[in-house]
Amino acid sequence: MTSIALIGFMGSGKSTIGYQLASQNHRKFIDLDDEITKFEGREIATIFAQDGEEYFRHVEEKILNQFSEANVIVATGGGIVMNQNSREILKNCFHTIWLEVSYNVVENRLRLDDTRPLWKQSKEQRQALFERRQGLYEECADMRVSVNERSPNQIATEIEGSISFI
């Protein structure tokens, strides 16, 4: 069995859907952000503030690579596609599913979230970041699933119907 990676912009539901998918299919679920936090011993916002995004992306790549042959379901961070090496790992070592979400849905979901370093920008900057990443998600994805106005159960069911979990 191949490990599955869920990619998509922040707020697309990667962790929620990943957990549900793993539970329904008796596979281990890995939240990459949680693994990075454990590895570093500090929160992601602190890593960004103290060492910057480039350092964070390097650690993210290292942790992602550890699960490439682990037969797990991994919820990645929204910006994992910004690192070329991480994109190669996603394309070559995982069945990668893009949870595609509209910007308006993201904005609504994250309107009160102040924990995401790259969301703490102007609306124009957030929208530019969203648009910049879309092609990178597409480049890595083996499958694309729209998550707009759909429940985690509906999304997990669609993914299950498209992938063999045997």
Rank of each mutant, 00 (worst) to 15 (best):
T2H: 11
I4L: 14
I4H: 11
A5C: 12
L6N: 14
I7G: 10
I7F: 04
G8M: 09
G8S: 10
G11E: 09
G13T: 09
K14I: 07
K14E: 08
S15H: 03
S15R: 05
T16M: 03
T16L: 03
I17C: 06
G18K: 05
Q20A: 06
L21K: 11
A22Y: 09
S23Q: 14
S23K: 13
Q24H: 10
Q24K: 14
N25D: 15
N25R: 15
R27K: 15
R27T: 12
D33V: 10
D34E: 14
D34A: 12
I36M: 10
F39W: 11
E40Q: 13
G41M: 12
R42E: 15
I44F: 04
A45C: 12
A45K: 13
T46M: 10
T46W: 06
I47F: 02
I47P: 10
F48D: 12
F48G: 09
Q50Y: 02
Q50K: 09
Q50W: 00
D51R: 06
D51T: 05
G52K: 03
G52A: 04
E54Q: 08
E54C: 01
E54H: 03
Y55L: 07
R57F: 02
R57C: 05
E60C: 04
E60P: 08
E61Q: 08
I63C: 02
L64Y: 00
L64G: 03
N65M: 01
Q66Y: 00
Q66T: 02
S68N: 02
S68P: 01
E69R: 01
A70N: 03
A70E: 09
N71Q: 06
N71W: 00
V72K: 03
V72Q: 04
V72H: 02
V74D: 08
T76M: 04
G77C: 05
G77W: 01
G77L: 06
G77I: 08
G77K: 06
G77N: 07
G79I: 07
I80V: 14
V81M: 08
V81D: 10
M82L: 11
N83P: 00
N85T: 13
S86K: 08
R87A: 12
R87M: 14
R87K: 13
E88Y: 02
I89V: 15
I89Y: 07
L90I: 14
K91H: 11
N92S: 15
N92A: 12
C93G: 07
F94T: 14
T96W: 02
I97L: 05
W98G: 08
W98L: 06
L99F: 01
L99M: 06
E100S: 06
V101M: 07
V101A: 06
V101N: 05
V101E: 07
Y103M: 01
Y103V: 00
N104K: 05
V105G: 01
E107F: 00
N108M: 03
N108T: 07
R109W: 03
L110H: 06
R111H: 10
R111W: 01
R111Q: 14
L112V: 13
D113F: 06
T115D: 15
T115I: 15
R116V: 08
R116M: 14
